[in-house]
Write a protein that binds this DNA or RNA. Structure first.
Lengths: 120, 120
DNA sequence: CTGGATCCTTCTTGATACTG
DNA sequence: CAGTATCAAGAAGGATCCAG
Protein backbone atom coordinates (compact mmCIF):
# COMPACT_ATOMS: atom_id res chain seq x y z
CA UNK A 1 0.00 0.00 0.00
CA UNK A 2 2.88 2.31 0.74
CA UNK A 3 6.52 2.06 1.63
CA UNK A 4 6.67 4.51 4.45
CA UNK A 5 7.86 2.04 7.03
CA UNK A 6 10.71 1.07 4.79
CA UNK A 7 11.51 4.74 4.55
CA UNK A 8 11.16 5.02 8.26
CA UNK A 9 13.48 2.19 9.04
CA UNK A 10 16.10 3.37 6.65
CA UNK A 11 15.66 6.72 8.22
CA UNK A 12 17.01 5.35 11.44
CA UNK A 13 20.42 5.16 9.92
CA UNK A 14 20.49 5.17 6.15
CA UNK A 15 19.20 8.74 6.09
CA UNK A 16 18.37 10.66 2.95
CA UNK A 17 15.16 9.36 1.54
CA UNK A 18 12.03 11.18 0.76
CA UNK A 19 9.40 8.93 -0.74
CA UNK A 20 6.72 9.16 1.94
CA UNK A 21 3.82 8.86 -0.37
CA UNK A 22 1.79 7.85 2.61
CA UNK A 23 -0.86 10.01 4.12
CA UNK A 24 0.29 9.24 7.62
CA UNK A 25 2.54 12.04 8.73
CA UNK A 26 3.09 10.29 12.02
CA UNK A 27 5.58 8.08 10.26
CA UNK A 28 7.51 11.09 9.10
CA UNK A 29 7.86 12.30 12.64
CA UNK A 30 8.93 8.86 13.77
CA UNK A 31 11.59 8.76 11.10
CA UNK A 32 13.16 11.75 12.80
CA UNK A 33 12.60 11.22 16.49
CA UNK A 34 11.85 7.52 16.39
CA UNK A 35 13.66 5.18 18.65
CA UNK A 36 14.16 5.05 22.34
CA UNK A 37 17.02 7.47 22.81
CA UNK A 38 16.22 10.48 20.72
CA UNK A 39 13.14 11.79 22.49
CA UNK A 40 14.96 11.63 25.80
CA UNK A 41 17.99 13.41 24.41
CA UNK A 42 15.84 16.10 22.89
CA UNK A 43 13.85 16.49 26.06
CA UNK A 44 16.99 17.24 28.02
CA UNK A 45 18.13 19.69 25.40
CA UNK A 46 14.95 21.68 25.87
CA UNK A 47 16.56 23.08 28.97
CA UNK A 48 19.43 24.49 27.01
CA UNK A 49 22.73 23.47 25.49
CA UNK A 50 24.52 20.52 26.98
CA UNK A 51 27.91 18.92 26.66
CA UNK A 52 28.52 15.41 25.41
CA UNK A 53 29.24 13.83 28.76
CA UNK A 54 26.39 15.61 30.41
CA UNK A 55 24.03 14.16 27.84
CA UNK A 56 25.40 10.67 28.39
CA UNK A 57 24.78 10.88 32.10
CA UNK A 58 21.28 12.23 31.78
CA UNK A 59 20.18 9.73 29.20
CA UNK A 60 20.23 6.74 31.45
CA UNK A 61 23.97 6.48 31.20
CA UNK A 62 23.98 5.93 27.50
CA UNK A 63 27.30 4.73 26.16
CA UNK A 64 29.39 7.24 24.23
CA UNK A 65 28.99 5.15 21.14
CA UNK A 66 25.21 5.26 21.19
CA UNK A 67 25.17 8.90 22.07
CA UNK A 68 27.43 9.73 19.16
CA UNK A 69 25.28 7.79 16.74
CA UNK A 70 22.05 9.37 17.90
CA UNK A 71 23.48 12.87 17.96
CA UNK A 72 24.83 12.51 14.45
CA UNK A 73 21.45 11.49 13.14
CA UNK A 74 19.68 14.29 14.90
CA UNK A 75 22.24 16.70 13.56
CA UNK A 76 21.88 15.53 9.98
CA UNK A 77 18.13 15.91 10.31
CA UNK A 78 18.59 19.49 11.34
CA UNK A 79 17.18 19.00 14.81
CA UNK A 80 20.27 19.88 16.79
CA UNK A 81 23.45 21.83 16.23
CA UNK A 82 26.94 20.86 17.29
CA UNK A 83 29.48 23.41 18.41
CA UNK A 84 33.11 22.52 18.93
CA UNK A 85 35.26 24.77 21.09
CA UNK A 86 38.95 24.71 20.30
CA UNK A 87 40.04 24.19 23.85
CA UNK A 88 41.99 21.79 25.96
CA UNK A 89 40.30 19.78 27.23
CA UNK A 90 37.92 19.65 24.28
CA UNK A 91 34.41 20.90 24.73
CA UNK A 92 31.48 20.18 22.46
CA UNK A 93 28.04 21.55 23.05
CA UNK A 94 24.79 20.42 21.56
CA UNK A 95 21.79 22.64 21.18
CA UNK A 96 18.36 22.48 19.61
CA UNK A 97 17.91 24.25 16.32
CA UNK A 98 14.80 26.19 15.45
CA UNK A 99 13.32 23.02 14.01
CA UNK A 100 14.36 21.14 17.10
CA UNK A 101 12.60 23.56 19.38
CA UNK A 102 9.44 23.10 17.37
CA UNK A 103 9.35 19.60 18.81
CA UNK A 104 8.79 21.01 22.26
CA UNK A 105 5.02 20.50 22.26
CA UNK A 106 5.45 16.84 21.43
CA UNK A 107 8.08 16.28 24.08
CA UNK A 108 6.22 18.14 26.79
CA UNK A 109 3.01 16.34 26.00
CA UNK A 110 4.85 13.05 26.20
CA UNK A 111 6.27 14.00 29.57
CA UNK A 112 2.88 15.00 30.91
CA UNK A 113 1.23 11.86 29.64
CA UNK A 114 3.99 9.78 31.21
CA UNK A 115 3.43 11.42 34.55
CA UNK A 116 -0.26 10.77 34.49
CA UNK A 117 0.15 7.21 33.25
CA UNK A 118 2.68 6.49 35.94
CA UNK A 119 0.27 7.50 38.69
CA UNK A 120 -2.44 5.46 36.99
CA UNK B 1 22.51 7.49 37.50
CA UNK B 2 19.23 5.74 36.94
CA UNK B 3 17.99 2.59 35.28
CA UNK B 4 15.07 3.96 33.39
CA UNK B 5 16.35 2.94 30.00
CA UNK B 6 16.80 -0.57 31.24
CA UNK B 7 13.24 -0.41 32.40
CA UNK B 8 12.29 1.03 29.10
CA UNK B 9 13.97 -1.64 27.07
CA UNK B 10 12.51 -4.44 29.11
CA UNK B 11 9.26 -2.67 28.73
CA UNK B 12 9.36 -3.39 25.05
CA UNK B 13 8.70 -7.01 25.75
CA UNK B 14 9.40 -8.05 29.29
CA UNK B 15 6.54 -5.88 30.56
CA UNK B 16 5.68 -5.46 34.20
CA UNK B 17 8.30 -3.32 35.80
CA UNK B 18 7.89 -0.14 37.71
CA UNK B 19 11.17 1.20 39.02
CA UNK B 20 11.29 4.51 37.12
CA UNK B 21 13.05 6.43 39.81
CA UNK B 22 13.99 8.88 37.13
CA UNK B 23 12.55 12.32 36.89
CA UNK B 24 12.14 12.05 33.16
CA UNK B 25 8.58 11.01 32.47
CA UNK B 26 9.29 11.00 28.77
CA UNK B 27 10.88 7.61 29.24
CA UNK B 28 7.71 6.30 30.80
CA UNK B 29 5.74 7.32 27.75
CA UNK B 30 8.35 5.78 25.51
CA UNK B 31 8.10 2.52 27.39
CA UNK B 32 4.47 2.36 26.35
CA UNK B 33 4.36 3.81 22.86
CA UNK B 34 8.04 3.53 22.05
CA UNK B 35 9.11 1.87 18.87
CA UNK B 36 8.29 2.42 15.29
CA UNK B 37 5.02 0.57 14.95
CA UNK B 38 2.96 1.49 17.96
CA UNK B 39 2.39 5.17 17.31
CA UNK B 40 1.27 4.41 13.78
CA UNK B 41 -1.09 1.69 14.95
CA UNK B 42 -2.55 3.95 17.60
CA UNK B 43 -2.90 6.79 15.17
CA UNK B 44 -5.04 4.68 12.88
CA UNK B 45 -7.12 3.52 15.80
CA UNK B 46 -7.98 7.10 16.60
CA UNK B 47 -10.46 6.88 13.76
CA UNK B 48 -12.30 4.06 15.44
CA UNK B 49 -12.15 0.32 15.85
CA UNK B 50 -10.32 -1.69 13.24
CA UNK B 51 -9.90 -5.33 12.39
CA UNK B 52 -6.63 -7.19 12.39
CA UNK B 53 -6.10 -7.33 8.66
CA UNK B 54 -7.14 -3.75 8.23
CA UNK B 55 -4.49 -2.68 10.70
CA UNK B 56 -1.85 -4.72 8.89
CA UNK B 57 -2.61 -3.02 5.62
CA UNK B 58 -2.64 0.48 7.04
CA UNK B 59 0.57 0.09 8.96
CA UNK B 60 2.86 -0.11 5.99
CA UNK B 61 1.89 -3.69 5.34
CA UNK B 62 3.17 -4.92 8.63
CA UNK B 63 3.46 -8.69 8.82
CA UNK B 64 0.86 -10.48 10.94
CA UNK B 65 3.56 -11.54 13.29
CA UNK B 66 4.71 -8.01 14.05
CA UNK B 67 1.19 -6.77 14.31
CA UNK B 68 0.30 -9.46 16.82
CA UNK B 69 3.31 -8.68 18.96
CA UNK B 70 2.66 -4.96 19.00
CA UNK B 71 -1.04 -5.35 19.65
CA UNK B 72 -0.44 -7.71 22.54
CA UNK B 73 1.89 -5.24 24.21
CA UNK B 74 -0.48 -2.37 23.75
CA UNK B 75 -3.26 -4.48 25.15
CA UNK B 76 -1.31 -5.49 28.23
CA UNK B 77 -0.49 -1.85 28.82
CA UNK B 78 -4.14 -1.01 28.80
CA UNK B 79 -3.94 1.15 25.71
CA UNK B 80 -6.19 -0.88 23.46
CA UNK B 81 -8.93 -3.45 23.87
CA UNK B 82 -9.43 -6.61 21.87
CA UNK B 83 -12.85 -7.94 21.04
CA UNK B 84 -13.35 -11.37 19.53
CA UNK B 85 -16.60 -12.12 17.73
CA UNK B 86 -17.62 -15.76 17.65
CA UNK B 87 -18.30 -15.82 13.94
CA UNK B 88 -17.25 -17.59 10.83
CA UNK B 89 -15.11 -16.22 9.40
CA UNK B 90 -13.51 -14.95 12.60
CA UNK B 91 -13.57 -11.26 13.36
CA UNK B 92 -11.45 -9.45 15.91
CA UNK B 93 -11.65 -5.76 16.48
CA UNK B 94 -9.18 -3.50 18.19
CA UNK B 95 -10.17 -0.28 19.84
CA UNK B 96 -8.53 2.39 21.97
CA UNK B 97 -9.34 2.31 25.64
CA UNK B 98 -9.93 5.44 27.67
CA UNK B 99 -6.22 5.52 28.43
CA UNK B 100 -5.47 4.97 24.79
CA UNK B 101 -7.58 7.88 23.72
CA UNK B 102 -5.69 10.09 26.13
CA UNK B 103 -2.75 9.67 23.78
CA UNK B 104 -4.59 11.55 21.09
CA UNK B 105 -2.87 14.90 21.75
CA UNK B 106 0.53 13.28 21.38
CA UNK B 107 -0.38 11.48 18.18
CA UNK B 108 -2.04 14.46 16.58
CA UNK B 109 0.85 16.71 17.48
CA UNK B 110 3.21 14.19 15.95
CA UNK B 111 1.15 14.11 12.78
CA UNK B 112 1.08 17.88 12.54
CA UNK B 113 4.79 18.20 13.15
CA UNK B 114 5.47 15.57 10.52
CA UNK B 115 3.42 17.48 7.98
CA UNK B 116 5.26 20.69 8.63
CA UNK B 117 8.66 19.01 8.67
CA UNK B 118 7.91 17.26 5.41
CA UNK B 119 7.20 20.52 3.64
CA UNK B 120 10.32 22.00 5.19
C1' DC C 1 37.07 15.38 27.03
C1' DT C 2 35.04 13.75 22.83
C1' DG C 3 34.56 10.57 20.25
C1' DG C 4 36.29 6.87 16.22
C1' DA C 5 37.09 1.83 15.20
C1' DT C 6 36.38 -3.06 16.31
C1' DC C 7 34.60 -7.06 17.89
C1' DC C 8 30.96 -9.70 19.60
C1' DT C 9 26.49 -10.77 21.60
C1' DT C 10 21.64 -10.02 21.72
C1' DC C 11 17.38 -8.55 19.99
C1' DT C 12 14.38 -7.61 16.32
C1' DT C 13 12.27 -8.55 12.14
C1' DG C 14 10.97 -10.85 7.79
C1' DA C 15 9.70 -14.96 5.32
C1' DT C 16 7.26 -18.92 5.22
C1' DA C 17 4.19 -22.49 6.41
C1' DC C 18 0.49 -24.05 9.16
C1' DT C 19 -3.97 -24.11 12.31
C1' DG C 20 -8.71 -23.17 14.45
C1' DC D 1 -9.89 -14.33 8.96
C1' DA D 2 -6.77 -14.12 12.60
C1' DG D 3 -3.40 -15.54 14.18
C1' DT D 4 0.91 -19.08 15.74
C1' DA D 5 5.43 -21.50 15.05
C1' DT D 6 9.87 -21.77 13.37
C1' DC D 7 13.96 -20.48 11.15
C1' DA D 8 17.32 -17.41 9.40
C1' DA D 9 19.11 -12.82 8.51
C1' DG D 10 20.22 -8.46 9.87
C1' DA D 11 20.39 -4.58 12.89
C1' DA D 12 21.20 -2.66 17.32
C1' DG D 13 23.71 -2.22 21.29
C1' DG D 14 27.60 -3.10 24.80
C1' DA D 15 32.55 -3.47 25.77
C1' DT D 16 36.97 -2.16 24.92
C1' DC D 17 40.86 0.16 23.15
C1' DC D 18 42.72 4.06 20.97
C1' DA D 19 43.37 9.05 19.29
C1' DG D 20 43.23 14.32 18.68
Amino acid sequence: MNDSIETLKEGRKGRQRKAQRTGCAVEVTLSVIGGVWKPVILFHLLQGKLRFNELCKRTSSATPRMMTLQLRELESDGIISRTVYAEVPPRVEYELTETGRSLEPILLTMRDWGSRYQSQ
